[in-house]
Design a protein around this nucleic acid. Structure first.
Lengths: 228, 228
DNA sequence: TAGATTGTTAATCGATTAACAATC
DNA sequence: TAGATTGTTAATCGATTAACAATC
């Protein structure tokens, strides 16, 4: 389904840059810019032109010598590569704050990412509706999955429940999990897991804050010494 | 402030693994496990023992030959490295769903990450309170920052407003931004930005879904051919 | 002491960057 | 045609893994 017809595995470094290319190309498209060279794009995105060309050429030759890339064409090609040319059904497991935030995020739908149901254990939530999406008792999940196609399960449960439910999802045939729980899920190899570990992300920010402070201190110290 | 007293810059690959080490060590601590070797930890975390030792030795020699690592000691050392041995004041810019979800996430406070205020433009939200945290008019942000120490600003605004507000934050002296907005902020070098691009994360998951489907198709095809 | 396991150097692997012939 | 810019190969850089002497 992806445009790469060769067999070589694309590195995850490359894949992680694709959405960013897609975003920048979308912006260019909105600004009615029809063509762009790797050099121009490189200046905008703050990566090397070489990397852009290397990345794109993993999937095919989308450009033209002496011209560059046609923005709309490249945008649509990356769209296809990312699999954004079809509709996905998503379910949210965990109707807490993050779960609700995701259901309320209307941009997903515009991209063909449709949240079809939310599941929770909390009786106060069950039966409620968020933006027209019903919250079901988590007990009903087996029934739901057997009657509805589910492409992605979004897991926003607390640590304690996440593993068990993830295993259940895997056994029910769910093949992709977007995991917001603060655990590393251990699942069969054919289940794809993409983690969003918010706390980890914040911690790396804190690390960098202190790193900067250390350097500043060192600089001040050096300055101090030099000036004497 | 970090424990690395040498000058060599720690690579971001290493830094991004630190929270994971911290998490696993915390789990071990809770299970009353007092010592662990890089080999044992490697099996648990699914990375090489060599990498663990290399990573840790960027910050110092925390282990002991023939023994391994003392779990509690290493846990606390990583805690210090990550800067989790002090309190941080955070503000949330954007009182929407994600902003509210973050305020409601009680685990932050347990780690010394205190959200002191939320800012929004929506008059319906201004004046409200989430878990005791007040939502202010975003107009009040200058006043707030000059009267209160702000270590991190969490930016959860829509794309359109994010850049402008980020610049304002930078000019008001905020030195770290945890950015949930779907834009790459262009800020002075001394402002640290950590991005959480949720849509990008989901897109890489979608890519992998289709990648698998492609491979499966190829396998089926090969099987088909072989069987004939 | 013998066994275990670190810290660290060396080897390998992979990803990024540079260079340039091909070609629009 | 001349200039621009790609696609791609080669060179470099950095990160991961392997190996092993040091030592608890």
């Amino acid at each position: 389904m992806n445009s790469n017809n060769s067999d070589k595995k694309i590195s995850s470094a490359v894949i992680s840059r694709l959405p960013r290319y897609y975003r920048y190309l979308g912006d260019l498209l909105e600004s009615d810019i029809t063509r762009i060279s790797s050099k121009e794009l490189s200046a905008k995105m703050n990566i090397t032109a070489s990397q852009i060309r290397q990345d794109l050429n993993n999937f095919g030759g989308f450009g033209q010598q002496g011209y560059g890339y046609n923005v709309e064409y490249l945008y649509n090609e990356i769209k296809k590569i990312l699999g954004l040319d079809r509709v996905y059904n998503l379910i949210v497991i965990g109707g807490g704050n993050i779960g609700q935030a995701l259901v309320n995020y209307t941009n997903f739908e515009r991209r063909g990412l449709v949240i079809t149901a939310v599941f929770d254990i909390n009786p106060r939530l069950i039966g409620m509706t968020i933006r027209g999406v019903k919250i079901y008792d988590i007990e009903k999940i087996e029934e739901f999955i057997s009657n509805n196609k589910v492409d992605v399960a979004i897991l926003t449960l607390p640590r304690s429940q996440a593993c068990k439910v993830a295993n259940q999802l895997a056994s029910l045939g769910v093949k992709a999990i977007w995991n917001f729980s603060h655990v590393d899920l251990k699942l069969p190899e054919d289940v794809i897991v993409e983690n969003v570990h918010l706390t980890d992300s914040l911690m790396t920010l804190l690390y960098k804050i202190n790193e900067v402070e250390t350097h500043e201190t060192e600089e001040e110290y050096n300055e101090h010494n030099t000036n004497q």
